[in-house]
Design a binder for these strands. Sequence first.
RNA 1: GUGGGUAUAGCUCAGUAGGUUAGAGCGCCAGGUUGUGGCCCUGGAGGUCGCCGGUUCAAAUCCGGUUACUCACCCCA
Length: 359
Amino acid sequence: MYTFTDRGERSLTLRPEGTAPVVRSFLEHKMYGQALPVKMYYVGPMFRYERPQAGRYRQFYQFGVEAFGSADPALDVEMITMPIHVYRELGLEGFEVHVNSIGCPKCRPQYRELLRRYLEPHKDELCGSCQSRYERNPMRILDCKVASCQALTAEAPLMADHLCDECREHFAGITSYLQELDVAVVHNPRLVRGFDYYTKTVFEIKVPDLGAQDAVGGGGRYDGLVAEMGGPSVPGVGFAVGMERVLLALDKEGAKTLTRPGLDGFVAQFGGESKRHAVALVHKLRQAGLRVDMDYMERSLKAQMKAADRGRVSWVLFLGADELAQGVARVRWMDTGEEESIGLAEAAVYLRTKKEARS
RNA sequence: GUGGGUAUAGCUCAGUAGGUUAGAGCGCCAGGUUGUGGCCCUGGAGGUCGCCGGUUCAAAUCCGGUUACUCACCCCA
């Protein structure tokens, strides 16, 4: 975690994720007294200390959802499908959803021991980090990237085969809901998320094209966390999405979602009196809710047109001496090149109406 | 914390037997059209060659150091 001492000699730590803070908030405000489940979302910056690399920044942005109070597998499914909806909405395609159950305090300890016993004879053959994982968290050996470790665990016992009745039923419930909803997921029995507060369900959404840091979102159930943090025994489930990674993935897929929206229009003027009117007109158009710009560089009309084109505007208003004399402006529609005259007094309403008609 | 790579114009990058005014494409500005965009043509502006030091008559180029960025490992709460 990113911990440092500030000028007041206080030790500060920047939050690395959103779930624990949301749980604290849930407790502080005694939300377990409200109608359950309580659902919350958050959006904001998170921080990590580890060296940055592709898709892993010191400061990054996450949004997430947490739901407290129900152990129903349908709620797990809601948390799994919600980020999927978001990705689809954004136009992301190349992602896969991995789902697994890592058991609960009733069945996981036994399984963990089973795994240890299985690996014990091969302990010396494990890679360096897996040897320490053997002591600390043997389940993480299952998703080690080192080939020799993968070979050693190829036939290892899996949590899926050693879940207690409750966990097995819960996972079966999730599987059947997902099937019913026709949501394609990969049951990945080796998926072990880093957080140890998870119980039963864990899931992760990966974009294989992203490189070493390929998870764009993930989550799981944490039925013991609220109690662990000093609250009543309230189950919870949630997910978080890393926004930069989603952007990277969209960028890689060439998604059109990332294109910057243009302005509505541009007011071109010819200097002198027309500039004074342009300033006033731009102000008026903006007040009408239109996104408008004008030239502030004393540029030629041709240059103003180029600027308008760069801003990908729908229209350009020309304010010249001739127009001003008649109290009108010329409107040029940039896609067709057609022009028309519009009274200065009606311009804002007219253009606003046109905009609404288009969208 | 460990290892590799990179650093030259606003951007993406060329540029070694060390040799004069360091280049291209794109972008930007102007003109070709004395009041009209996209395409095209012409011209222009813009660079401490990351920084410090060394070798040399001469360093973007060679050597040492340093900083930043980057990819991966570690880690992923």
